[in-house]
Amino acid sequence: MSAKLEYGGGVVRVRFSGEIDHHAASLLRASIDSAIAQKRPKTLILDFGAVSFMDSSGIGLVMGRYKLMQAIGGAIRVENLSPGAYKVMRLAGLDRLGELKQKEVS
């Protein structure tokens, strides 16, 4: 599990890779939150393209960041979800809070 952060043009993009569970989520949170606090981006993009597994811990991870972005008047986008991760996020109704995009099937 890791998260690579990029910033440019008012956008913070977080590229997750590996497995996101309760064990990993607590470690990922801190670096994302400090980037939001420092850069105050207009948009936060959470890119799940390289995530091989996600359980309901991913919901808390997205929800928590959604609240932070809302507090600074920004938006959140969730991209490249695998079918499994998309299913978990839909179950939580996260598609109503922001944009949820599935991975393109090539």
Binding site: D55, S56, S57, I59, M63, A92
Partner: peptide
Amino acid sequence: QGERAGLGFAVMESF
């Protein structure tokens, strides 16, 4: 407290 979504059983039931 914190960021547990409270959806563990919902996920188990749906999957």
